[in-house]
Structure formats: C-alpha cells, structure tokens
C-alpha cells in the first residue's frame, strides 16, 4: 500500500536543501534507524544534485511504502535532461562528466536498498530508490 507522495521541484541549490529536509522528515516518521536516515538523506542529496546539475532541473517525489512486512521510503528523481549515454561508465567510482568527484551515482546506489534507473540519450533520466526499515 503506497501513500500519496510529496513532490518538490528542483531548480536551485535551495531546492536540494529542501529535498534533504523532506527526506529527513519522512525517514524519521517511518522510523528508519539513525544510520539508515543518514544514508538515505545523503543518497537523496547526491541524486537531487545530479537532477539539478546534469539533468538541468526536474522533480523529486518522496513516498512512504509498505511491502506488507515492513515500511520504507521510495524517492523518484526525474529530469528531462540529456540522459546518460553509457550507464556502466556513469556507475564507475570517480567517473564524472562534470566537476564533481564522480561518487554521486555509484555512492548513492551503495547507500540504498533498491536502485532503479531509466534513461536514454535525449530522453531524460528517472532514478527510483527505496530504503526499507530493518
């Protein structure tokens, strides 16, 4: 059973801060452990920044989910940017087409339980991550 999510438009640095704050609030509400809260908020910060910097802005939707056994949080990062041409390369630690450290995508994937990405050149990028309560 999924509840209605909260949507944030990401078009500036300030919006990335708002995403972090929303994810933190929801993570506390579904009672993620402190370490899991920290991991999820950090992953959300990386991915929201990617949406802004590489996707040219987009949306972040935060939803609480329940798989029947335990609650969790699902976050969808969507942009209409240039998309990712070489996914394997994009997931390589240290690889970046920008000025960052190249840890955002690969690092964020390590910090969550489920990670799905849909992208194509010219068709934008949509990343869905889920973190379950332990």
């Amino acid at each position: 059973m999924n509840q209605q999510g909260e949507l944030i438009q990401v078009n500036s640095d300030q919006d990335v801060v708002r995403v972090r704050q929303l994810v933190r609030t929801v993570a506390v509400a579904v009672k993620l452990s402190l370490v899991d809260q920290t991991k999820l908020v950090t992953a959300a910060s990386e991915l929201a920044r990617n949406t802004l910097v590489y996707g040219g802005g987009g949306t972040v939707e935060v939803t609480t989910v329940d798989n029947g056994r335990r609650p969790g949080i699902r976050i969808v990062f969507a942009d209409q940017g240039p998309g990712i041409v070489d996914l394997d390369l994009a997931f390589t630690d240290g690889y970046t087409t920008g000025s960052g450290l190249g840890l955002g995508l690969s690092g964020a994937r390590r910090l969550v339980d489920e990670f799905d990405i849909v992208t194509a050149p010219g068709a934008g990028t949509s990343i869905t991550v889920t973190k379950w309560c332990r």
Binding site: L34, V35, Q37, T38, K39, T42, E46, D93, L101, L103, S106, G107, A108, R110, L111
Partner: peptide
C-alpha cells in the same frame, strides 16, 4: 563528525 556520518561517508566512497 557524528558516527552515522562517518559510516555513511565510508560507504559513499569518500
């Protein structure tokens, strides 16, 4: 640095 932040940083690869 908080313990949870240290754990997350290492897992992030930083």
């Amino acid at each position: 640095m908080r313990p949870a932040v240290a754990i997350t940083l290492v897992e992030l690869g930083l």
